[in-house]
Design a protein around this nucleic acid. Structure first.
Lengths: 188, 188
DNA sequence: CAGTTAAGCGGAGGCACCTCCGGATATCAA
DNA sequence: TTGATATCCGGAGGTGCCTCCGCTTAACTG
């Protein structure tokens, strides 16, 4: 999970990167999303330039800071698939995802940027999410509950769009996710 | 359409407001959304403070600048309803809306804020949109094509979520809107 | 161990955002 | 017409964002 990557960083670079990430996690936990990048850099004991080299945008930093938690949400997918019929498992996972976004609204904007960017195939979080959705969707298609002409990408896009648009009105988000799932159910 | 409001502005205030709005429209048309507020203020011949008094946030200014165009999109709803069966009319209107957002991506963030704000009942654009969707939805329910347990608010939320999340991938947005409409169709 | 060099560092600087408040002025009452 | 005053104006200033580039140093070589 501490990805080695193609290019191993120089020792000092790796150390600084970790310190920035730790400081960012602290700052976001304490101040929410409006934590200043300069403050994070100072707290990490590095210059602002160093922070920007490692994380070229605010979103990149947030994304990296929350990646581990996001992975946890994604890992719940297989478990749900064990316990529930595919369509229900998908719906339940959507709820987990929406809950997560709801508690970490800070992540919302970052996520929107990540997903909207779309084009970047190296983005880890995006893979993570698509990877979580794919088995759920495939199982639903196999069991005949879900239509087969929608990709995991599309589901993610709709899901995140709905979750982000609904913002903090969690009940409304729930209704919209029901609606989304209805659209996904197979019809002759 | 040039709402008189409860409090008629003082003559100079009204004049300044109009000039700012005109400058904003010019700036957004020319530079897209990254037009600077300071530049707009200067172009309008007012101080930055005046701009901020009239439009406390960037979104407020954008919203005001695009309100007229948005109204045009909304006015298309009844016409579509005349020409098409309700569900198709709704779908066609969604396309208009998505097209609009697509050409004016600048508006996207503003719209997201407007819709996410939600709580502000005085927001004119929100009323406009809900007012456009409501008849389409009602006609669909009346004809039995669409389910009756979804509100125009919910439709707007899903629609905008999808359109915004899809960003500039217009084809994907189209698929997602199809999906949304499938969810809206009546099922026993 | 000493030399080389590519990678990394960091903060000064320029730009935009937004707030705040002393001065200006439209409006109204007398 | 002449104050009185509520309203509005505008830009200086404090803050954060992000870029750029000269200096530093880890890592590698012989």
């Amino acid at each position: 999970m501490t990805e080695p990557k193609a290019k191993p960083l120089r020792a000092d670079a790796q150390r600084n990167r970790d310190q920035v990430l730790a400081a960012a996690a602290r700052a976001f936990a304490k101040c929410g999303l409006e934590a200043t990048l300069e403050g994070i850099a100072k707290d990490a004991g590095v210059g602002i330039g160093t922070l920007y080299r490692h994380f070229p945008t605010r979103e990149a930093l947030i994304e990296a800071a929350y990646r581990k938690e996001l992975a946890t949400v994604c890992e719940a997918a297989p478990e749900l698939l064990d316990k529930l019929p595919p369509a229900e498992a998908l719906r339940a996972w959507m709820d987990r995802f929406a809950d997560y976004l709801h508690t970490k609204m800070g992540m919302a904007d970052a996520l929107r940027a990540i997903i909207a960017a779309g084009a970047n195939p190296y983005d880890h979080s995006l893979e993570l999410l698509v990877g979580a959705i794919e088995p759920l969707l495939a199982a639903g298609v196999a069991s005949g509950e879900l239509r087969s002409d929608i990709s995991a990408d599309d589901v993610l896009m709709s899901l995140s769009g709905v979750a982000l648009a609904a913002g903090d009105r969690r009940d409304q988000a729930g209704r919209l996710l029901d609606l989304l799932l209805d659209g996904l159910r197979y019809r002759a």
